[in-house]
């Protein structure tokens, strides 16, 4: 296939991945990697590099909107970024040492977990907790805009949130994805943040987390300009259009179909991984 044709296919595929990734809340990265590896036969190391870059683009684009609306908690974001960036470095170093079948296997499992998490309804009772000593000292309790004015919320379990964020950063650095599912676990379940605040803050953090491992990948020669160009532009365009249809009820059916497709892709990746190991 000529480069021109290949670039066009990758661009269209990445557009679709970005669109569906933002509709389902899974993120573009976790969709683009199986597409590139399973459908286009791209080596997973190229795919991870390209995906990581597109993750920075979409998260920065989305964060710009969220931050202005006042949903992001910049203090929580900054504090937890210590955990995610250290995790991202560890993840990137691991990625340089693990064999590709192992990475494919881990990716398949993470993909299934993420699809499961995003298909469940989010707990909306968060934020109604007593002020926690450590969170108060760190000035993490905040407010967010709602119909009736500002709503205040408290934060709890900072240490376990911090630990989970280290894991999220590690997965992000190892697999080149935003790892939103683990971040939701840390901020919704452990720290009990209201879900709008946790979504916005997590988005805000993804760019910095991905930048930490992208530096390593770039210097190790994993980021191929010819491949990354259509991936980054396609995912960016697709996800910004997807974000506009986010609360459209008609997307429910689409999500269900998409969930099945992702599950099949995940199984394929696990199968390839196991086959490569045996």
């Amino acid at each position: 296939m000529s480069i021109l044709l290949f670039t066009a296919f990758i661009f269209i595929g990445s557009f679709g991945a970005g669109f569906l990734g933002s509709l389902t809340g899974l993120g573009g990265g976790i969709v683009i990697i199986p597409l590139l590896t399973v459908v286009f036969g791209v080596d997973i190391r190229y795919a991870i590099g390209a995906s990581l870059v597109s993750v920075i683009a979409t998260s920065s684009g989305a964060a710009a909107a969220y931050v202005k609306e006042g949903f992001s908690n910049i203090r929580i974001g900054m504090f937890l970024e210590i955990a995610t960036t250290v995790g991202a470095l560890v993840g990137a170093f691991l990625a340089l040492r693990l064999s590709t079948p192992v990475i494919a296997l881990i990716f398949g499992l993470v993909l299934i977990h993420s699809a499961y998490v995003s298909s469940r309804p989010r707990d909306e009772s968060s934020g109604q907790v007593k002020p926690d000593k450590l969170a108060t000292r760190l000035r993490m309790n905040g407010t967010y805009p709602a119909r009736g004015g500002l709503v205040s919320y408290n934060v709890t379990s900072v240490p376990s949130g911090f630990g989970l964020m280290f894991v999220a950063g590690g997965i992000s650095g190892l697999l080149g994805i935003g790892s939103g599912a683990v971040k939701v676990l840390a901020m919704d379940q452990a720290m009990r943040l209201p879900f709008k605040v946790s979504t916005a803050t997590s988005n805000f953090m993804i760019g910095v987390t991905a930048a930490a491992s992208a530096g390593i990948y770039l210097r190790q020669g994993y980021i191929d300009p010819g491949l990354t160009m259509p991936v980054m532009l396609g995912v960016l365009l697709g996800s910004s259009i997807g974000a506009k249809h986010l609360f459209n009820a008609e997307t429910k059916k689409l999500r269900a179909i998409f969930g099945v497709v992702l599950f099949v892709l995940a199984l394929e990746m696990i199968y390839t991984g196991l086959k490569g190991l045996l």
Binding site: S2, L4, G41, D43, P225, G226, M229
Partner: peptide, 25 residues
């Protein structure tokens, strides 16, 4: 990235590609 992409495709668009084997940049 887009302007770089245009230059790249203009010069190398007709060449063949292969991303199935990994080479460092």
């Amino acid at each position: 990235v887009s302007s770089g992409g245009i230059v790249y495709l203009f010069r190398h668009g007709q060449a063949q590609m292969d991303y199935s084997v990994f080479h460092r940049q």
